[in-house]
Structures are given as C-alpha cells and as structure tokens.
Computed example of a mutant assay.
Amino acid sequence: MTHPAGEAPPLDLLYSDTEEDLRSAVRALLADRAGPQAVLARIEGGSPYLPGLWEALAGGIGVAGLLVPEHLGGQGASHREAAVVLEELGRAVTPAPYLTSAVVATETLLALGPERGGSGGPDGPAAELLAGLADGGTVAVLAVPLSTGPDANTDANTDTDTDAVGPVPAVADAIAADVLLVPRADGLYGVPAADARITPQVPLDLTRPLAVVDTDGVTGIRLADPAAAGSAVRRGLLAGAGLLASEQLGLAAWCLEETVRHTKERHQFNRPIGSFQALKHRMAQLWLELVGARAVARAAADALATGAPDAALTVAVAQTYCAKVAVHAAEECVQLHGGIGMTWEHPAHLALKRAMSSRTALGSPGRHQDTIAALMDLPAPR
C-alpha cells in the first residue's frame, strides 16, 4: 500500500507473523539456555553472562543484526523485530548486551553514513564495526552512563584534548564490550575495550552490570566529527529508550503471568488466594496497565521503524508510561507471592531490580515528561 508524499504510514500496533515466529524462536532458546535458575547461579560471580548464550542469540538466531542493512551483513529488519526480541529478553531478565550493543551502539553507527542513516549507510571503519556487530562477533557499547537520555549533552564531561577523557561511570555492559564508542569534544571514537581501564561497579540489577570506563590517553579510531557524532549519539539513545519500553513490557507481562499462576495454585482457607476479590482487583488493574504499556511500546517501535516525525514524542510517552508499569508489576509480583517472593531463590527479585534500574535508564520518567512538555509546548505549572 502506498501513501501520499510526505504522509506518514498509519500506526501499526499488531504483531506480524514474522515477529511472532521470531518471538517463538527467542523464547524457546531462552527457556532452554537462560532459565531463572541458570541466571540466579551466575549473577553472584564475576560475570552474569551465560556461556554460549550470546553466540546462540546473535549468531544462531541472528538477532544481533536485525537493525543492520543486508549489504552490511545484517538482517535488514526493523525496530519492530528488535522490540520483540527485547520483550522476550525482558521476560527472562536475560543478562545479554542486546540493548546496549545491537540497538544503541548499532543505531549510533548507522547514523554515521554519508546520508546520516540513509539507505547507503556508513562506510569505512563504521561499516567494518557494523559488520562485526551484525554477526555477533563484536560487542560494542556506547561509553555514556546508563542514565543518559536522548536529550543529554554527551560530550559535557570531555576534554578538548583528543587523548584526555575523564572516567565515565555506570556504563552498562562495558565488561562484555570489544569496542567502546566514546563521544568526545572533537567527535566520536572507536576505542578497543582492551586498551581502556574498565572497573566494575556493584549495580542494583546484577543482570545488567555497570562499570567505570576510563579511556584517558587512548586515542582509538575517529569515526565522526562533532556535528555528526552528536546527532548519531542522540539517534542511538533515542532508539535505546524507545525499545527499552518493550523490554519493560516483557518484564511486566511475565510478572503478571507468574502472579496469576501462583495465586491459582496457592491455597488459603481451602480456596485459591486468586479467588479473593481484593487480589482479583489488583491483578485486573495490572492487566489494564499492561494493555496500555503494550500499545505505547509498540507505537514507539513502529515510530522508530518508519522514521515517523513524532518519534521523539512517541518514545518519551512510551518511556514515561512503561517504566512505571514495569515497577508496579514487579512490586505486585513480589507482594502477591508472599514470603516466597522475598526469597533469593525465587526470580521475582530479579524482575524487581531490573524494573527499578530500568526506570532511570536512558532517561528517567521525569526527564521524558519534560521532553513531552517541550515538544508539545506545554508550560510548566506555576
């Protein structure tokens, strides 16, 4: 179906057959390789990443290259398919650098083409990096704090000297990176992670490790000038924030499903606790919130996929809503599981910690609300 010039295609919130097939493949793999007990067994070690899982996801199924054009070695898919993958990763609270590498870093590099992300795509070192990212052989991470939103000034803490960049705290998945994308005052640089000083931090969410990254004295390869670097980083962070909503959606969906299952099986006074009206109302409220979260998360993925002019607004709305829904669903999951939900052995705490940490990732809900107000020209209350 064609659309008049300058007219955006209609919003499509439904899942295609291809997306559902992709979901099934990812869910089956995670059920086999990344179940709750496998994740719990890894998170207290030096690295939470499950051996062989990234290779199976990125190379076996090919999800790492979904956003990369075919002529650069990728799948040539869109943000809609990537959103489905993130839904499933969120459901399983999977320790994997998908959001940071296959979305944020990939989208940043894609924006460095001669046409700023046009059909030609990037060339030179950026194209070589993308080829490595597409097959999962290389993991790249944008060296900015996890809390950095799409509207942030990413070179605010850099020095004008190319070789002098201060330590950057709270960089997600830096310990898994092969290449760091480092924004500096004079452009964007690709720095081998082995040449940087990476100091792990203790995060709230042990399934998404954080680290302090120091590239002081490491030059790396210059990928873009300051103007191109700024717009590319913003595009990468925008895509990350928009698709993080899908991860939060998947997490909230698992929390509700697990809570419903538990309340059907748990009996008190010789009846399932899920039959008590007060608990029914709480779960019904969660379901309503989940329906809204699915709508805005799908809208954000579709807006990014189609390059909609209001993509920034749609992403801000999705993050403002989905971050809160994920936290509420995780809190209810812990509470309605009773004493079991408070134990380390039950995975409910993994969902709660991921939801709480994701609430401030790639811009807090308050920051996104400010973005909505600015884009809609809404004056602040007096």
Results as ranks from 00 to 15, higher is better:
residue 242 G to S: 07
residue 335 Q to M: 11
residue 133 L to T: 01
residue 209 P to I: 06
residue 150 P to C: 03
residue 189 Y to S: 10
residue 228 A to C: 00
residue 341 G to T: 07
residue 169 P to I: 06
residue 335 Q to F: 11
residue 92 A to E: 09
residue 144 V to R: 10
residue 354 R to T: 13
residue 55 E to Y: 00
residue 19 E to I: 01
residue 137 G to M: 01
residue 52 G to W: 05
residue 134 A to W: 04
residue 293 A to Q: 09
residue 90 G to H: 09
residue 362 L to T: 02
residue 373 A to E: 14
residue 300 A to V: 04
residue 161 D to R: 14
residue 3 H to M: 12
residue 85 V to W: 07
residue 302 D to K: 02
residue 335 Q to Y: 10
residue 298 R to K: 06
residue 256 L to P: 04
residue 15 Y to K: 00
residue 267 H to I: 01
residue 278 A to Y: 02
residue 69 P to G: 08
residue 172 A to V: 13
residue 97 P to C: 10
residue 198 I to E: 10
residue 206 L to S: 12
residue 217 G to L: 07
residue 9 P to G: 10
residue 124 G to C: 10
residue 99 L to Q: 11
residue 91 R to E: 13
residue 269 F to H: 14
residue 223 L to T: 05
residue 197 R to Y: 01
residue 73 G to Y: 09
residue 237 L to M: 13
residue 69 P to H: 05
residue 142 L to S: 12
residue 252 A to K: 07
residue 145 P to V: 08
residue 37 Q to L: 13
residue 322 C to A: 15
residue 17 D to M: 03
residue 189 Y to Q: 03
residue 48 P to E: 11
residue 40 L to R: 14
residue 126 A to T: 01
residue 115 E to M: 04
residue 282 R to L: 08
residue 86 L to E: 12
residue 42 R to A: 15
residue 381 P to H: 07
residue 188 L to P: 11
residue 180 L to W: 04
residue 278 A to Q: 09
residue 99 L to D: 06
residue 73 G to W: 04
residue 210 L to E: 12
residue 224 A to H: 04
residue 364 S to M: 08
residue 202 V to P: 04
residue 57 L to G: 08
residue 278 A to M: 05
residue 120 G to C: 02
residue 312 A to S: 13
residue 30 L to T: 12
residue 152 A to C: 05
residue 73 G to L: 06
residue 214 D to F: 11
residue 277 Q to L: 13
residue 141 V to P: 11
residue 165 V to P: 02
residue 275 S to H: 10
residue 52 G to L: 08
residue 377 D to C: 10
residue 369 Q to T: 13
residue 47 S to M: 00
residue 59 G to D: 12
residue 1 M to S: 15
residue 37 Q to H: 14
residue 58 A to T: 05
residue 130 L to W: 03
residue 200 P to Q: 07
residue 157 N to Y: 14
residue 255 C to A: 15
residue 340 I to G: 00
residue 206 L to K: 14
residue 138 T to Y: 00
residue 286 L to T: 06
residue 245 A to C: 03
residue 9 P to E: 09
residue 123 D to C: 01
residue 292 G to E: 15
residue 294 R to M: 01
residue 251 L to R: 13
residue 57 L to P: 09
residue 329 A to W: 07
residue 309 P to K: 11
residue 178 D to M: 02
residue 317 V to F: 05
residue 330 A to G: 10
residue 109 L to T: 02
residue 156 A to M: 08
residue 176 A to C: 03
residue 192 P to G: 05
residue 190 G to V: 01
residue 79 H to S: 14
residue 129 L to M: 05
residue 205 D to L: 01
residue 16 S to W: 03
residue 221 I to F: 03
residue 313 L to M: 04
residue 263 T to I: 04
residue 229 A to N: 04
residue 46 G to M: 03
residue 37 Q to P: 00
residue 86 L to P: 06
residue 84 V to D: 05
residue 124 G to I: 08
